[in-house]
Amino acid sequence: MQIVASNTTNSSAQDLSDKRNENPFLVIDNVSKVYPTRQGSFTVLENINLTVYEGEFVCVIGHSGCGKSTLLNMVAGFNKPTTGEIRLQNKLITKPGPDRMVVFQNYSLLPWLTAFDNVMLAVKNVYPQNSKAQNREIVKEHLEMVGLTAGANKKPNQLSGGMRQRVSIARALAIRPQVLILDEPFGALDILTREELQEELLKIWQEHQVTVLMITHDIDEAVLLSDRIVMMTNGPKATIGEILEVPFPRPRDRALIAEDPRYYGLRNQALDFLFNRFALSDDAY
């Protein structure tokens, strides 16, 4: 299969190369992760090198067990690399912090707090110096941004899966993180809600210009959202196999992307990587 080699110049390609000239924002520098087990050491990740620029949207895709979540946990600071280091704006990441907010697949909202209070809890902790009214304003603004003004006083179990994930995203963004980390945020949602939230995330990202690192299993989702798709090889000793540049201009529209001749080439290239070159073996799924 031929790979799309587009020689057209378009705005987004230029944007991207502009970003390259800036200083690296998030740097994953030669990182590997080894877990000791009874049978000896187990290398999950090896030689991961990735530089993410400010305002970039990067998707990481790979089969289950390829260590995507391990990588993400290290960026979040829940976990330390065995060798190598991860730096955010030249500062070494050693522990979790509000500058890198994570949105999990299972929402991780506190069930006894309302949507409003869930967001408020995070905001209060990050901005203790603010007045109560100021913080209320921040929470309101972010719930509004994800279209949840009406559900603000509902508890998580009164909200649908999509709504809960909206709260979770609002909570993450309300504290103005430098990097938004999304761990398969839409994996548990049905296709309609998923598409709706993808579009909303795209809009929010556009407005906030936050740097996003997102894990997904969905090729179409990655193509729609990201500037670059990082494809991981299979574990153990997983590493970055290939990085696809997504050249589509922004703001993006699902339907318009599907009309772009490069879309199908890009999609097929990702399929080829994941189902042909690095397909799962029989005892691995």
């Binding site: 790979g62 289950s64 994996g187 299993h217 994941l274 397909a279 799924y285």
Partner: peptide, 9 residues
């Protein structure tokens, strides 16, 4: 199942 495991099955 996730999209990729699904593909293999």
């Amino acid at each position: 199942l996730d999209a990729l495991t699904r593909g293999r099955l």
